[in-house]
Design a protein around this nucleic acid. Structure first.
Length: 501
RNA sequence: GGUCGGGUGGCCGAGUGGCUAGGCAGAGCUCUGCAAAAGCUUCCACAGCGGUUCGAAUCCGCUCUCGACCUCCA
């Protein structure tokens, strides 16, 4: 068994082999912290968190680099060289760094809510201006970039000419050829600075009103929007590293340009495996600012968005995302999220119960086919993960086991049906895959001692009421607790349990 | 217009030639004071039309249709 991942560069699933095992270098494009993160942003970070977790589980020593873009991109290149962060700052009457700080905090908060492991290094674009300038200088020295009026542009045509001969034409990642693009690229104003319309900016001269600006050999300005990733990836992961990840919408032009820049500087393709997650859609349409259909994470968590009927917990959202395979689009709706919420609760209820049981390995199984079936389900989990992170199948198998666990709990099957050793295996693997690999944590208010005490007291009172056939009182306790989000469950053995919703 | 990817049951979503995906919702039953929860059973499907094949959701062709990228984008 070996981990296979889909490589956008070769357009096929490939066996993952690190350049320098057991070390793995992984770079993932992080957020631009000029606004609040929305659901669409959550997908790559959760997807690559799962990949990171799985690589760690396999025993690799992973350096996971995920940047923060705080230097601002152009709103529309060639038209108005406007810095996103600077313009937003004026709007919000904040210093640019104040704004960057605000949204960085919010982003970190959201990542934490999702139980995403922190990356090994989280470099910022503004902290690496010098590295970016050095890289641009190198590209110029090699003759693949030119200065025009205080800005520096990458010469895409020349790059394509030279590197086509080395089987690395411009467009190698996104599969487009330059000729098509020359024909189809839209006409934009103020492009006279560029030799060709396909050229892209490495450094941009700052207009007077532009707040974020740095000194450079070409005057005061700010870096172009692709160079930061090339500079930081090279600095922390070297000239060639293992995995480069990000959303599919970054494949072109961002990653394509990154490849061109890094290839000129480092004389090889920067990453071996290019991994791209697909988009989250809403009514079949990509979630994005330009479509005006974003659901911010904070709105999701507090239910304040119009299309939501309720709040959804971060784990529900994480689970919703992991119920699909990362390379397909995922269509979002209130209904779909509700389904995920219920499903997650059922899974976690069964899991938490099982986890609390103790089994002795001596017990032999009396139902060998069920015993074998459980082992099969469990053993398939790594196979599914290793088939291009098919978390959807992992989740499906977890659900196969839920009825068996609940049957044991409700004594529909005997304690001896499955061997103690198998139950121990199931316990261990469920913990591994649910908590370690999928990164789903137990979300419950049950850790408040006093609250638990109060609930137990109410349960006792309800039991007494029931014994006296005072159903008015017993129902009142049950129903009102339910309204507060505490659900009472009468178990088969006469015991009463409760869960928080 | 160019490049690419889709269309699976009420909804979300796996699956690439023959075997129940899974979840949510629906129906029935069991349990229960009544519920809930849980268990069991069950309904509903592969956009359309052709073709290949003993056999296709899965391969091929055409048609319809949706979307992504080509401009900032996760």
């Amino acid at each position: 068994m070996a981990l296979k991942i889909y490589n956008s560069l070769t357009r096929q699933k490939e066996v993952f082999e690190p350049i320098n095992a057991p070390y793995v270098g992984m770079y993932v494009c992080g957020p631009t912290v000029s606004g609040e993160s929305h659901l669409g942003h959550a997908r790559p970070f959760i997807t690559f968190d799962v990949l990171y977790r799985y690589l760690l589980h396999l025993g690799y020593k992973v350096r996971y680099v995920r940047n923060i873009t705080d230097a601002g991109h152009f709103e529309e290149e060639g038209k108005v060289a406007e810095d996103k962060i600077a313009s937003k700052a004026i709007l919000e009457k904040l210093e640019p760094m104040e704004l960057v700080q605000k949204y960085t905090h919010l982003y970190h908060w959201a990542m934490d809510q999702f139980n995403n492991l922190p990356p090994s290094i989280e470099p910022t674009a503004t902290g690496h201006i010098i590295e970016q300038i050095e890289m641009i200088k190198k590209i110029m020295t090699d003759g693949f970039a030119y200065e025009a009026n205080g800005s520096v542009y990458f010469d895409v045509i020349k790059y394509n000419e030279v590197y086509s001969k080395k089987n690395q034409p411009y467009g190698i990642l996104s599969g487009r050829n330059l000729e098509d693009q020359l024909d189809t690229t839209r006409e934009l104003d103020n492009q006279d600075e560029k030799k060709n319309k396909v050229d892209f900016a490495l450094w941009k001269k700052a207009p007077v009103e532009h707040i974020m600006r740095w000194q450079s050999p070409w005057g005061e300005g700010f870096p172009g929007w692709h160079i930061e990733c090339s500079a930081m990836a090279t600095k922390y992961l070297g000239k060639k590293f293992d995995i480069h990840g990000g959303g599919m919408d970054l494949q072109f032009p961002h990653h394509e340009c990154e490849i061109a820049q890094s290839t000129v500087c480092n004389h090889e393709l920067p990453a071996r495996y290019w991994v791209h997650n697909n988009m989250i859609t809403i009514n079949g349409r990509k979630m994005g600012k330009s479509y005006n259909n974003v659901v911010k994470l904070s709105e999701l968590f507090d239910g304040s968005h119009l299309i939501l009927t309720q709040a959804y917990s971060p784990m529900t959202v994480r689970f919703f995302i992991l119920q699909s395979q990362y390379r397909g689009t995922l269509d979002f709706s209130n209904e779909a999220l509700q389904a995920s919420e219920k499903a997650l609760r059922r899974l976690m209820d069964a899991y938490e119960w099982l986890k609390a049981q103790s089994f002795t390995s001596e017990k032999k199984s009396t139902d060998t086919s069920l015993d074998q079936q459980l082992k099969t389900w469990v053993n398939e989990l790594p196979e599914f993960m290793e088939d291009d992170l098919n978390t959807a199948k992992v989740v499906a198998n977890l659900f196969e086991m839920v009825p068996v666990i609940n049957s044991l709990k409700d004594k529909h099957i005997s304690a001896e049906a499955v061997s103690g050793a198998t139950w121990q295996l199931v316990q261990a693997q469920l913990t591994l895959f649910i908590e370690q690999v999928l990164g789903i944590k137990v979300e419950s208010g049950a850790n408040k001692k006093q609250l638990n005490g109060v609930i137990h007291l109410l349960i006792d009172i309800r039991k007494e009421a029931k014994a006296k056939k005072d159903f008015a009182t017993s129902d009142k306790i049950r129903n009102q607790l339910l309204e507060m989000g505490i659900q009472i469950k009468d178990e088969k053995d006469g015991e009463v349990s409760f869960t928080f919703s």
